[in-house]
Each structure stands twice: as structure tokens, then as C-alpha cells.
Design a protein around this nucleic acid. Structure first.
Lengths: 332, 332
DNA sequence: CGCTCAAATGACACCGCTGTCAATTAAAGA
DNA sequence: TCTTTAATTGACAGCGGTGTCATTTGAGCG
């Protein structure tokens, strides 16, 4: 039988209300008392019954993660990270597909809802954000830099990371470096492209429109863009892609065109998705801690609901340049 | 404000206990009364407060998914599927790393625990199963065929699927078909290899020890096994792998040995993991509905806890042969 | 038509915790 | 040392359901 707050109270020789206070970290408990209670709780292996707590205190405890394309690797990572965060805090995680007006209204009326976790593309969709603000629904954005009144974002420095990976290629001697963009609707697409341009500019290399191709994060779009790049008059010696799937597409295009990677062409990705490791050659890429970001977002959402944090903040997680086999020195 | 059982009772003109009965599907309620209650509940948009229900009725509501290597694609899929099932049933999902004796004892004592979901390799580890049986912990296995007293399994027919994909290659004219196994500790490894052998035998092809190589489901082991196969005196024209990652490794080895796939060599995988689609050439493989299996496992666990289902059952989910670019006719 | 007995319904306690507010204690000031 | 006042602590109700058991209802039958 599981110990209750009353058992602990008896054991510690205080009223059960005091135990409750300690368990909730309330300040008005004398240190000595607190100690006693904690010891008793430990001894009885006590943990609060969250069902009872939820029933009585009407504090919201549901975090809803809004997902659109569940199969994408970052969506999965976000889900897993968010779940870890929720589990740690004793919150419930609900996964919801892009909610319609009706669902929003229901959410706004739901006093158990702590808030939403938004990942791209929702996290930087002005329409969505506006609707949420209008409905008075709290939310936390993952992986977006765009400011929005009253919302915090957990992200990474996409622009800087993109610059780093381009810098790395330049360091290898490359000068004709092409870039395959993500979809324009994604804010990160812009940031990553800007990072590439920052790097090129800083090294005095020319940024040519011919070397920048549109993509949409899909493998197929990577293939297509690379085919164009590899068959134009001035061919790149390196291609930086806005994500790993498109980089995988580049590799496929190179293979079909009999261009060896990395001997004749270097290819870089972004995300460090699972594919980066099991493709040949394995991808040089940027590792992004999507899971940690999502987890952190849940934690912040929870904290935020307690002590109203500063709005408009961005919390940045570290990224890491992962060097693998798909990049090498510029061919002679 | 959310409607309570009492509101519904008033609206329907019955006692709140009757409403409770209806909400729990108890039989001793007259159809006419039930109708009234349901209508009232609908009208007030009522749903039971799960916190209150959990508090009072001490029925277990926690499902724990045992995971070891969270990053594996099937582990992620299992997690997402299990979560979907839990959400649907209003259960809580907890993720736990390989539990030690201590953790097991705690689980056995935890009367909120509905049961465990086990995926490979735990799901067919006799030691683990025995410990669970001894501790009296209910569990549900995903993707394992091995019988175990009192447990049900949700799986697929690995052997048949493996035979199908080999049959497909034979249909393309291949006769020298090699096989790269999964780790021996995994039961599916055995089943999949047997499927390959079934197919070879049925077509009157010789099963040569030289053509069967050990692997461990990792990319690296796929590379290694393929290197051996592609450099021995009698080289295969097709390689069947026990999973996609090893097939990706084969592709890499083929590339390094200048063997074009599928022109000179066909490669088949198993799982239809995300990598199968974004690799070049894309992998012919077996699609396995891991998510659905895990979800189903949760649902069965729940049902099972109510009406003690028949033990030792296996519920099979459909699989599908996915033909992509990595396989082709036998070279002339 | 009254009686019996199972089926249907209701009354009420209580699950384990938190909110409210009153009671107690200790610290500080007179 | 005795108030005064703030800091601690405790008593008690009640969150929204379910379990137990008593009560009412109505179908079947003599």
C-alpha cells in the first residue's frame, strides 16, 4: 500500500497540511519542520498522488503538442522530448493535429490546459500565433526566432550554425559553394541561408544567384536542385543543404552523375537526423538538439505558468558541427 | 466551467450515481434511463474527470514502455504508437529504461501500474519474462513470436515477410542470394533468416553457409558483412538484409567496391525505416507497422486487465512488401 | 390483486490532496 | 516581562467521481 500524506504527517509528528506545504515547496515552513517531513517522506517512500492533487487544485496540467507531419524526424524528436519533459513534471502530454477554430475554442475554455508547444511551421506562422493570442492560449515555440508578443522561444542559432558549416567548407579550400534552401514558408530556411551568405561574404566570396537553389526539405527536392547545380556551366565543388534529407538527395544526384563524394564534391547537411549516419558517405552536418529543445519548452511552459516569465525571450540551445565523410578538401 | 456528473444528473433527472453507472458502461441501467443520461451528457458536453475517477477507483492506469536504445527508429515508433494508444484510453504512458531488480520490485508494488509494453530485445528475453512473471507484473509483447505463459504478443509474421522478399528476388531471376542476419539474441533475427531459407528451399536453390553472414542490425555491421560477400570467390547477385540499416551498409560497401545497385547487385532491407526512402538507391523492404503494433499492445493490455484474455496469444499485423530502386533483374 | 424477488436506482461515505481561514507559536518591540 | 505582530501550523471542507449497501421499482406469479 502506498503511503499517503497522512502517514507522513504521523511519522513526522506534524499535521498533514504541513506535509502538503512541504511537498509543494511553500516557503512558510520552518527549516527544521521541513527537514523532519522530508525525512519521514523519504522513509515511507512517499510521492504525492497526482490524481488527488489534480482533482483538488485546479491548476492546469495538460500540455498539448501541435504536430502536423508526424513522420518527420524532427516532429518525432519533438514528441519524444516533450514527453520526457511532461513525465518529469508530472504533466500530461496530448498530441494534436493542426487544430481548427473549433478545437481552439475548446482549448481556450479548457482550464486544465497549461499551454501549447509549437514546432515549425506553426511556431512562426503569424496567423496561428495571432489566433492563439486572441484566444488567450499560452504557448511555447520551439525552433523559431521570430518575435511574438508574450511568447518565449526555445531554439538554436540557425544562422550562426549555418555560417559555421559554410566556414568549415571554406576552410577546406572551397570557393564555389552552392546552397539548397528550405521552403520559404519556414523561418529557419531564411536564417540558414543568411548564415551561408554571412560566411561567404565574410570570406570575400561571391554569392551568386546561380548557386542558390530552392528546395522544400524533401529528398526529392534535394535531388532536383542538385541535378541542376551539377549540370550547369559553373559547377560547385561543395553544396550546403538546409537539411539532411536534401543532402541525401544531393548524394543521390551526385551518384547518378558519376561525381564522387567527397573527392569531387563535398555535401553538407543540417539537423543530424538519423539518416546522416547511415548513408554513404555519412553526412557532415549540424547537430541540433530537438529533443532537448522540446523538453525545455515544456519545462518553461510550466515555470512560466507559475511566475510569468519575461515575454518575447529566446532561449538558445547549443548546436554542434559534426564532421563526417561527405566533405573533403577542394578537388585540385 | 466544465460540467460535472451532478450537472448531468440534474439535467437527466436521475441520481448522480446512475450517471456514473452509465459512464462506466455498467449493465444494470434501464435502456430508457441510459438514453436520457447520454442525451444530457451530450448536451452539457460532459466528459468524466479522470483525476477524480483515478483517485476513487483504484484501477491501474499507468502503462510503462520499456526501452533500451531510444534512438533506434523502431523504438521511436513504438513510443509514438504506445502514446497514441494511451491517449486514446486515457491512460498515462511512462517510459523507462531497462529496469533493474529494484525497479521491478517497485513496479510489482505499484498498484497504479496496468502493465508493461515490451519491445525487442526484452520482449523475447526469457530472463526478463521470467522475472516479470515471478513478480506478477502484467506485460504485453510487441514483435515477438516466442510463446510465454500468460502473455500476449502483437507482432507480424517475420518469417513469412522475409520469405516474401526473397521470393521477389528469386522472381527477378536471382539465384545467388546472400543473407545478412540480425544479432542472434534477437528472436526476429532467427525468424527472418528462416524465412529466407524457406524461400530458397522452396525454389530449389542451395543455401550456402558462405552466403549467410552475421550482422547486428547496425550500419557498420552491414558494411562489414557486405565487404566480405562482395570479395569472396562466389559473389551474390542479391543480398537480403535483416533490417534497413544493414542494407544501407550494403549500399555503402557496394559503392566503395564500384558495384552498381541495382544493375549489378540487388539489395533488400526490412522495416521500412525512414532511411529506406532517402537513400540512393531507395530500398526495397518490408513495411512493418510498428506504431500500430505498439498502440494495439496498449489497447490489449487495457482490455486484458478487464476481462482476462486468453494467454499465449499472438495477434498478427499485416506487413507489406515495398518495392523501390535497390532491387532489379539479375545481371546477365 | 397482493406478494415475491430480482433488477434498477439512490444515499452516503470517502479516495488523497489543496484552499481557506482560524489557532498557535515565536520574534520583536515596549 | 508583557504585548503586538508576523510567521508557522492546524482544523476542516470539498474537489468529482466510485464503492457499498439500502431502498425502490416492476415483472412474474399464485
Amino acid at each position: 500500500m502506498k503511503a499517503t500524506i497522512i502517514d507522513v504527517a504521523k511519522e513526522a509528528g506534524v499535521s498533514f497540511k504541513t506535509v502538503s506545504r512541504v511537498m509543494n515547496g511553500e516557503t512558510s515552513v520552518r527549516p527544521a519542520t521541513k527537514e523532519k517531513v522530508l525525512a519521514a517522506a523519504q522513509k515511507l517512500n512517499f510521492t504525492v498522488n497526482s490524481a488527488a492533487r489534480r482533482l483538488r487544485s485546479k491548476q492546469p496540467h495538460v500540455v498539448t503538442l501541435i504536430l502536423h507531419n508526424v513522420s518527420r524526424s524532427y516532429a518525432q524528436d519533438a514528441q519524444i522530448g516533450a514527453m520526457a519533459g511532461a513525465q518529469e513534471l508530472g504533466l500530461s502530454l496530448v498530441i494534436e493535429d493542426a487544430p481548427d477554430k473549433d478545437a481552439l475554442a475548446r482549448m481556450a475554455a479548457d482550464d486544465t490546459l497549461l499551454g501549447l508547444i509549437l514546432i515549425p511551421p506553426f511556431s512562426h506562422d503569424p496567423v496561428v500565433l495571432e489566433e492563439l493570442d486572441a484566444a488567450g492560449i499560452r504557448y511555447m515555440r520551439v525552433g523559431s526566432e521570430m518575435d511574438s508578443p508574450g511568447s518565449i522561444t526555445v531554439g538554436m542559432d540557425d544562422r550562426k550554425a549555418s555560417r559555421e558549416i559554410t566556414d568549415y567548407l571554406i576552410g577546406l579550400g572551397h570557393e564555389l559553394i552552392a546552397y539548397i534552401c528550405g521552403p520559404e514558408a519556414h523561418e529557419v530556411s531564411l536564417l540558414r541561408r543568411l548564415g551561408y551568405e554571412d560566411s561567404m561574404r565574410a570570406s570575400g566570396l561571391t554569392i551568386s544567384a546561380q548557386m542558390i537553389r530552392a528546395g522544400d526539405f524533401s529528398y526529392a527536392s534535394g535531388v532536383k536542385a542538385a541535378e541542376v547545380l551539377l549540370n550547369q556551366d559553373v559547377q560547385p565543388t561543395a553544396i550546403v543543404c538546409a537539411n539532411d534529407e536534401m543532402a541525401a538527395g544531393c548524394l543521390a544526384a551526385a551518384y547518378r552523375n558519376n561525381i564522387r563524394v567527397p573527392e569531387k564534391l563535398s555535401v553538407a547537411g543540417f539537423d543530424d537526423s538519423p539518416v546522416a549516419r547511415v548513408i554513404y558517405p555519412s553526412l557532415t552536418t549540424i547537430h541540433q538538439a530537438t529533443r532537448d529543445m522540446a523538453k525545455r519548452a515544456v519545462i518553461l511552459l510550466h515555470k512560466n505558468s507559475l511566475d510569468d516569465a519575461a515575454p518575447g525571450d529566446v532561449e538558445r540551445m547549443a548546436h554542434e558541427l559534426i564532421i563526417r565523410e561527405s566533405t573533403g578538401p577542394v578537388p585540385q
